[in-house]
């Protein structure tokens, strides 16, 4: 809808858009800013917007108190492990559905999607029971599998929509050229789908990173990721805004950076290809 506009209109639009953008971003900005204040400055009235003594001590305290690095590592392992495992399972499935469609393909795709809509709370107890039975409670491996399963439909769907855009003829050409199925997927499909696979990995990494039902209910001290780390700050204890801010900043910073890279793919991934 790009249309020619007058400069005056552009100036007004710029002002309004920036004002709204900054307003929406403000909570994040405020959190990051507060993390560099002392506790007293954090609750100062009027609020301090820039002129205060910048300090890093909150970060040191948070790391010391809650062992941030361990939670961070757990988050990386859970998000990364579940995403990669999911990709390994999903690539062959998406290949099948995109290039050898049958009458049932559509039904299978929709059914996969429907598993994503199963309310987690409805199966909380059975899953906990299974976890207890197999000694998986508070283990990374157990949670990697669960996170993989809840994101698998999205991974399959995203890969499917990306694979659909690759012309079948190219894969047939490879087949004529003597490539086996493995070689066809390895040398032709995967390299051609690299952008799609990368954005699938990125989005699912983010979704797994932020998942806050299973990670809160199935972990304790050992395997807890950053969602659990931050939940441990939910009961206030004296002056703690600055420390809370530092902990929050540390929990969201890695994913904010990744998220900004993936904004284009976000739409497609989250609407299952219904909006491009």
């Amino acid at each position: 809808m790009a249309r020619a506009t007058t400069t005056r209109r552009k100036v007004i639009t710029t002002a309004v858009a920036w004002a709204i953008g900054l307003l929406i971003f403000f909570p994040i900005y405020w959190t990051i800013l507060t993390s560099f204040k002392t506790e007293a400055q954090a609750i100062n009235d009027p609020p301090l917007f820039f002129f205060f003594d910048w300090t890093l001590e909150n970060y040191a305290i948070v790391q010391e108190r809650s062992d941030y690095m361990r939670f961070l590592w757990n988050s990386v392992v859970l998000a990364g492990g579940s995403t990669l495992l999911g990709i390994l399972v999903a690539v062959p499935a998406a290949w099948s559905m995109a290039f050898v469609p049958s009458k049932r393909t559509k039904d299978i795709l929709l059914w996969m999607l429907s598993t994503k809509m199963l309310p987690a709370v409805g199966v909380l107890y059975p899953i906990s029971l299974i976890f207890v039975q197999f000694n998986l409670l508070d283990t990374r491996i157990g949670l990697v599998v669960v996170l993989m399963l809840i994101n698998l439909p999205i991974i399959v769907w995203m890969l499917y929509t990306y694979f659909k855009e690759i012309p079948v003829e190219i894969l047939e050409a490879a087949r004529m050229d003597g490539a086996s199925l493995r070689e066809e997927i390895l040398y032709i499909l995967t390299p051609m789908a690299v952008p799609g696979i990368a954005s699938t990995i990125l989005l699912n990494f983010i979704l797994a990173w932020n998942e806050a039902f299973w990670t809160l209910n199935l972990t304790a001290a050992k395997a807890g990721p950053l969602t659990a780390f931050i939940a441990s700050y939910s009961s206030p204890e004296g002056l703690f805004f600055a420390k809370l801010s530092a902990a929050s900043t540390m929990a969201i910073a890695p994913i904010l950076v990744l998220g900004w890279f993936s904004q284009k793919q976000l739409v497609r991934g989250l609407t299952f290809g219904a909006v491009k």
């Binding site: 012309p167 003829e169 190219i170 047939e172 050409a173 490879a174 004529m176 050229d177 032709i188 390299p191 051609m192 690299v194």
Partner: peptide, 12 residues
């Protein structure tokens, strides 16, 4: 050997 309508070259 086959030559396809869309050429089906490997773009990468």
């Amino acid at each position: 050997a086959m030559v396809f309508q869309s050429y089906a070259l490997y773009p990468h």
